[in-house]
């Protein structure tokens, strides 16, 4: 890697200027748990690394207008220790917690997981289900987009060269809401998801679903937000018929590949299984039960 430069700017403006001024490949470093592996293997040869962790606020969690804002580079372990996030978005917290080992938890971030743009990223289906938005900063200023508009393909994002994510906004949580994320891996830890499923629901007083967002990971080139799964839930309690429809909708949405982590048949079938299981947890949480997913 000849000529690699590392910088750690202390302001958004400085970071954006550095990114904009780079002539070669410039990479934003948050936790580095993907970037350093890619650099070591030679798959990624940046000329400039912009470490964003010294930018004020980018490692913090705060409440604003009833919602929560999580700094883009906040390590997983910090999010997991945050009471407000655990209360409002246990599915997101659990999803982030599933990324890698304890060691990786000390570094990995939502922004890194999203911008690495792997279809198997654990936190991303949960972010999609949560209707989180990404606040993006760049030379042209600041913009806010739904998280599902960030990844555009494996390893590709909609961010311009001089842009990076500053923070994520999680909307205020209505009463009777719950979310969940489940993934399947061959071992109990340390694997990349073979299939992942995020579900967020809001129920009425009688347990009927009034709003739902559902997502699937590792079954298509990007994480999928699946409207048909949400449609299977909205207007229903979680009875067997609803679960069967959800399972079918999940399987129908899958466009997976055969690879070293799973087959098309396996991924498709397990997507349905995880959808049912995640929905149960999300509904239980929306009904006020405390449920541990893992």
């Amino acid at each position: 890697m000849p000529g690699l430069t590392y910088t750690a700017p202390t302001s958004v403006d400085a970071a954006v200027k550095l990114l904009a001024g780079s002539s070669g490949l410039a990479k934003v470093l948050s936790g580095g748990t993907d970037l350093l592996v890619q650099m070591r293997s030679g798959r990624m040869k940046p000329e400039l690394i912009v470490d964003t962790k010294k930018i004020p606020g980018i490692m913090d969690i705060r409440e604003e207008n009833g919602g929560l804002i999580v700094g883009a580079a906040t390590p997983g372990a910090v999010v997991e220790a945050n009471a407000a996030m655990n209360k409002a978005w246990p599915g997101v917290v659990e999803a982030l917690d599933l990324i890698g080992s304890t060691q990786v938890q000390g570094r990995c971030s939502l922004a890194g997981n999203l911008c690495n743009a792997s279809p198997a990223a654990d936190s991303v289906p949960a972010l999609y289900a949560a209707a989180a938005t990404a606040v993006i900063v760049g030379s042209k200023g600041r913009r806010e987009i739904p998280v599902e508009q960030v990844p555009t393909g494996p390893g590709r994002t909609s961010l311009a060269k001089d842009e990076f994510i500053l923070e994520f906004k999680f909307p205020p949580r209505p009463a009777h809401s719950g979310d969940a994320y489940l993934r399947f891996i061959p071992r109990t830890e340390m694997d990349i998801a073979v299939v992942g499923c995020g579900i967020s629901v809001t129920l009425d007083d009688k347990g009927v679903c009034t709003a739902a967002r559902c997502s699937l990971g590792a079954v298509a080139p990007t994480v999928l937000l699946v409207q048909a799964m949400a449609d299977a839930l909205v207007g229903h309690t979680l009875d067997d018929a609803t679960l069967a429809k959800l399972d079918a909708a999940a399987q129908a949405a899958c466009k997976p590949i055969n690879d070293k982590r799973g087959t098309i048949e396996y991924r498709t079938k397990v997507a349905g299984v995880l959808a049912r299981r995640a929905a149960k947890i999300a509904f239980d949480r929306a009904s006020g039960k405390t449920v541990k997913a893992h």
Binding site: R187, T188, I192
Partner: peptide, 11 residues
């Protein structure tokens, strides 16, 4: 070690 899956402690 990511995809050559030796048992980890929690397995």
């Amino acid at each position: 070690f990511l995809d050559y899956r030796c048992p980890v402690a929690s397995d």
